[in-house]
Design a protein around this nucleic acid. Structure first.
Length: 563
RNA sequence: GUCUCCGUAGCUCAGCAGGAUAGAGCAUUCGCCUCCUAAGCGAAAGGCCGCGCGUUCGAAUCGCGCCGGGGACGCCA
């Protein structure tokens, strides 16, 4: 039983209110000096026919404080409780040191599967800067749900189908100079650009392209092989970039994968009378829900992304029997998701309530020095590399004696980039400037990483001790207590992040822990003269290290031990 | 035009299943390294929480209406 519950049980008879309900009432006071838990008495004023401050004062008089609560204070309409410092220190520290890299984890998701569609790049197209939010947020959610015990399925819904592949093959056949598998993405993009230039002069190229795509569709061996090699080459190349960001997928099933799964959907929509013909196309009329129609089959007879998304959703339900299916896709597609979710509902797929469009804002690059590289295209890899290079220079300046500067620069530079889309509400647009990204002061990934490295440094220099054996009661000073409070809040932050599909909840929690540790570090000497105090503070540093590492890991950001 | 999201300090943002004197970071100014990583710590300054009305004992938080901005709106994804 935790402190909240025992307080609720003690308060229940005095308030004549159910203890379970009272548990929900507790708040965290705005400031630490107001206590650890606040009990608002406003809601009792009607039933008890007294003013809230009077109730608070009376409760304070009559309440017998349960074990673990040191004192109560009536302030205005609140009854504030101060938990026993030693009890708190020992329970928090004990939990973290016992659970270690599982601290903050849970088994709430046991037996449930969560699908996360994210990143979703196009084959033979740049892996661009604009893919950063979906990749970083999707990866974080994937890791968060896995940490909570869910079975997770990360899906990269590849853009690997369409007439552009006919164009690619046409261009390759005309101007290709080496085996297609040897082409890098940038070279494939150059071929594509050339195709469009030449097609301006010679429109017949477009017919050739259509013919090639038709060959892919009908299974012509040569066309299929070229297409397949382009796809393999792209995946091989992007995997390098994904690896730098700690990203991986369980499924690379893209648009082509659902080609043979759409006819059944189209047929069902017709048979159930959900779709109808309109202006030569098959649509689902959604005017009843104040939405434009959802196009299922175009007037030329071909399918469209809504059809594919419906087929994909059904496939995922059948294959994974998901508890939730997340789509980490920009808010520009809000309407599209509302539309095809509604169509699924009309088809009687009640599980569509478990499908969630996890939308996010736009990223833009303000820095003019960058927008010219590679033409108008900003490759994500270039951004990552530039951040790593600049970080390397900063490390040379700040930590000249560091041995492995390169790997620290990799961790910190990429961490800073990922952080930029993981520390605010998803819906916020992010505009990039190097000044902002490479400012490593304050609420940033490098700040958290730095704090982690500080913990590691102290622990490295200290004699090896059994942290679990330390006397936590000695951590009764306000700085240690504030740090313990921040550490204690971490598991709830993980749960909340999952509930809201918002990784930033974890980012903010890490900032709180790091900030509390740095204050503690400044005010209290960890390597204190008293060996018992020293042992307790080392245990606290170890707990801090573990929390920061776990949290960064959930965000897909690495935690170097030195920087 | 319709739908939708957003509007909190100079800037970027937390807070919003209603509750205490609205909080951070950056930038600015001023302090702190003979001691565990100064990528740190402290202090100052900075606010009609877009505007109005309503609900409530109580509104940054809920409702309605304006204003301002982003996005989407039938054969791209």
């Amino acid at each position: 039983m935790n402190v909240k519950e025992s307080l609720s049980n003690a308060l229940a008879p005095l308030c004549q209110t159910d203890a379970g309900e009272l548990t929900e009432w507790f708040e965290i006071p705005r400031k630490a000096d107001m206590g650890d838990l606040a009990f608002p008495c406003f809601r009792l004023s009607r039933s008890m026919r007294k003013a809230p401050p009077v109730i608070a004062a009376e409760l304070k008089e009559r309440l017998v404080l349960p074990v673990g609560v040191a004192k109560a204070e009536a302030v205005g309409g609140y009854l504030n409780f101060f938990v026993d410092a030693a009890a708190k220190a020992s329970s928090v520290l004990g939990k973290v040191l016992a659970e270690r890299d599982r601290y903050g984890a849970s088994s709430v998701g046991e037996g449930k599967t969560v699908c996360v569609e994210y990143s979703s790049i196009n084959i033979a197209k740049p892996f661009g800067f604009h893919h950063l939010p979906t990749t970083a947020i999707g990866n974080a959610l994937y890791r968060i749900y896995r940490f909570l015990g869910y079975k997770t399925v990360g899906i990269n819904h590849l853009g690997d189908w369409g007439t552009q592949f006919g164009k690619m093959i046409t261009a390759y056949k005309l101007w290709g100079t080496k085996p297609i598998e040897d082409y890098s993405i940038r070279e494939l993009v150059a071929l594509y650009v050339r195709f469009h230039e030449e097609a301006e002069k010679d429109p017949s190229l477009n017919d050739t392209a259509r013919a090639w795509f038709h060959k892919i569709e009908t299974g012509d061996p040569e066309a299929l092989e070229l297409w397949s090699k382009m796809k393999d080459g792209t995946i091989r190349e992007v995997k390098v970039t994904y690896a730098r960001m700690g990203v991986d997928f369980d499924s690379w099933a893209g648009e082509s994968f659902y080609e043979d799964k759409m006819p059944a959907i189209i047929r069902e929509l017709r048979e159930k009378g959900i779709s109808k013909l309109d202006q030569g196309a098959e649509i689902v009329d959604l005017s009843e829900w104040n939405m434009p129609p959802c196009i299922i089959v175009k007037s030329d007879g071909s399918t469209i992304y809504a059809t594919r998304d419906i087929a994909a959703a059904c496939y995922r339900k059948e294959t994974y029997d998901f508890y939730k299916s997340l789509y980490v896709v920009a808010y520009q597609q809000d309407l599209h998701f509302r539309q095809f979710f509604k169509v699924l509902e009309l088809m009687g797929r009640d599980w569509v309530k478990d499908c969630v469009h996890v939308n996010f804002g736009m990223v833009s690059m303000e820095d003019a020095s960058f927008s010219t590289r590679s033409g108008n295209i900003l490759y994500l890899d270039d951004i990552l590399q530039a951040a790593v290079d600049k970080t390397y220079a900063i490390i040379c300046e700040k930590s000249p004696s560091l041995e492995d500067k390169q790997s620290a620069a990799e961790a910190v530079g990429i961490g800073a980039i990922l952080w930029s889309v993981l520390y605010n509400n998803r819906i916020k647009d992010v505009s990039f400037t190097w000044d902002k990204i490479l400012n490593f002061d304050g609420e940033t990934a490098p700040y958290v990483q730095y704090t982690h490295a500080r913990c590691c440094s102290v622990l490295r220099k200290a004699p090896q001790t059994d942290h679990a054996a330390a006397n936590a009661a000695l951590l009764d000073d306000p700085y240690s207590q504030a740090l313990l409070t921040a550490i204690e809040a971490f598991p709830d932050a993980v749960l909340s992040a999952a509930e809201k599909y918002e990784p930033y909840v974890i980012s903010r929690s890490l900032i709180a822990v790091a900030s509390a540790f740095n204050k503690f570090y400044y005010e209290q000497r960890i390597m204190a003269d008293d060996p018992k105090v020293q042992a307790a503070r080392l245990a606290l540093a170890e707990a801090t290290r573990l929390v920061l590492k776990n949290g960064l890991n959930l965000l897909g950001i690495s935690a170097p031990e030195r920087m």
